[in-house]
């Protein structure tokens, strides 16, 4: 494997981690991470959809007209989400109950749409697969970590196994939305601190250049000034 290909994969782990660095997919991140197992379930489901949709969109990238690309992407993604949802319902009903509405909502998960828009529609199939896989692993890792932290502090268990629940009563607030925001904020802060220590800047292809709504953005001119200043 060429070195370039490997970097497509590892990009999503830390450097461009979709949740902590790109701050995408915040809704499922906050909503389902009340337990570590839910984090894994959500992460794996999204990864499967992401890899599959990246493949199809990359194959169709020269066929899809530019003007209707977003509906086309969503249609492709929705197809795979339906498949995943049926599979989860059939084989992992407990995960299906735990994730609830957030499983079908993978359709509008911004990580998947963002990778379709920013990567798969511009690159060939193999890099797209690797990119989807890397992003998916990054997403799953953060969701599992967050789920584990919230489960430990909020219920005294990790993966359903009792850790501290016998000695002290857990802080239920960590299972509620405020606790989710708190843990999320701390993790983002920690990842920023680590990135700063390693001297890495926030990824360059964020910002106006690659913004999907650049064409209709009313602040586009202002934004370009800012980019020029840098």
């Amino acid at each position: 494997m060429k070195k370039g290909y490997l970097s497509y994969l590892t990009n999503g782990f830390i450097k461009e981690n979709p949740v902590l660095r790109l701050v995408l997919g915040t809704c499922p991140t906050l909503a389902v991470t009340t337990a570590a197992i839910n984090g894994i379930g959500m992460g794996v489901s999204a990864t499967i959809v992401l890899v599959c949709s990246n493949i199809v969109i990359s194959l169709l990238r020269n066929v899809i007209p530019d003007k209707v690309r977003i509906p086309a992407f969503i249609t492709v993604i929705a197809g795979f989400v339906s498949v995943v949802q049926m599979l989860v319902k059939a084989f992992l009903p407990s995960i299906d109950t735990a994730l609830g509405i957030y499983l079908p909502l993978i359709v509008v998960n911004c990580i998947i749409l963002a990778r379709a828009e920013m990567f798969a529609s511009k690159n060939s199939v193999v890099p797209s697969i690797l990119d989807g896989l890397g992003m998916g692993i990054g997403f799953t890792a953060v969701l599992t970590l967050m789920g584990a932290i919230r489960e430990l502090l909020g219920a005294g268990t990790v993966f359903g196994l009792s850790v501290t629940s016998q000695f002290i009563s857990p802080m239920i607030v960590f299972l509620l939305p405020p606790g989710g925001f708190f843990v999320f904020g701390i993790l983002v802060a920690a990842s920023n601190a680590i990135a700063k220590k390693n001297g890495k800047k926030i990824v360059e292809h964020l910002g106006c250049e690659n913004c999907p709504s650049k064409a209709m953005c009313q602040n586009a001119s202002k934004c370009e000034e800012v980019t020029a200043d840098e």
Binding site: S169, P170, M171, I172, V173, F174, L176, P178
Partner: peptide, 10 residues
């Protein structure tokens, strides 16, 4: 409030 939400019983 954090305590109230965390430990509603106590």
């Amino acid at each position: 409030i954090v305590l109230l939400v965390s430990f509603p019983a106590a």
